[in-house]
Design a protein around this nucleic acid. Structure first.
Lengths: 129, 129
DNA sequence: GTGCACCTTCCCCTATAGTGGAAGGTCAAG
DNA sequence: CTTGACCTTCCACTATAGGGGAAGGTGCAC
């Protein structure tokens, strides 16, 4: 398959596929005589996998590591499980931080409802923050 | 005050202060004869305000708008209230998305516990995702 | 023989909030 | 007179995931 066909089959762009190759997520593509990249079917699987990994919030670097393992003949299951555990921890921390921020902003916002512009001290720039 | 003193008083760096000036958050500083930036006291208030704005999750661009209003003689209260309302909406959306992602990842992770590497189809790269 | 779709490489640009470093000017102390 | 702590400007770089567009090669149809 040529790069454009792969892109169409996976709903991405040729730009993205070249970018993944350059980033090490995909191995350097075979070339046909004219210099065009020539892909086997499994590239489509890999691209779909990349999308699933992104849907799980993994970075391209993490996804690349998994693909490397698979390309080197290992089943990446254990590694993926470790990644998912870390990802859960990471998400929990992010959610906690965001909830704290939301609470802080809500408090500012509540104060804003009974604010009088006239009582606003210019030295503080804004009495609400 | 010279830039280093302002930086020390607000626990930032001279680099950051020059960056804020360049970004339009702070007006172009007065210069003393030798070309050094020379600041009035109120710059310290502005920098502290910038920190409070960041603590509320506002971007520098949003904070800059507030400072502009104040510098033009307006009390930015109404504008800030609008910003805070939008910020709450934004945070709520982010939190919702993150919770959904967390749920999805948790499901993958649960599947990972009873995964058998041998049953892993290489074509799928990883059966957990 | 030319128009069109496709491919190639190359380099720059996006947004965010700065950080690092080079090359050079200024000022007080020793 | 030189050392050191400041200050100046300018340019590049960080991380993330690509996108835009130029300049040029390929292959097929008309």
């Amino acid at each position: 398959m040529r790069i454009g066909e792969v892109a169409a089959a996976t709903d991405t762009t040729t730009k993205t596929i070249r970018f993944y190759e350059q980033s090490g997520l995909l191995p350097a593509a075979e070339r046909s005589e004219n210099g065009y990249r020539s892909y086997a079917e499994d590239t489509v699987s890999k691209l779909r996998f990349i999308r699933r990994g992104q849907a799980a919030g993994l970075t391209l670097a993490q996804i690349g590591d998994i693909l490397q393992l698979r390309d080197n003949g290992y089943a990446p299951c254990a590694h993926v499980q470790k990644l998912l555990t870390r990802q859960l921890t990471h998400l929990d921390r992010q959610i906690t931080e965001l909830l704290a921020l939301r609470a802080a902003v809500a408090q500012f916002h509540a104060g804003a409802n009974n604010a009088d512009p006239a009582s606003c001290d210019p030295d503080r720039i804004c009495s609400l923050l």
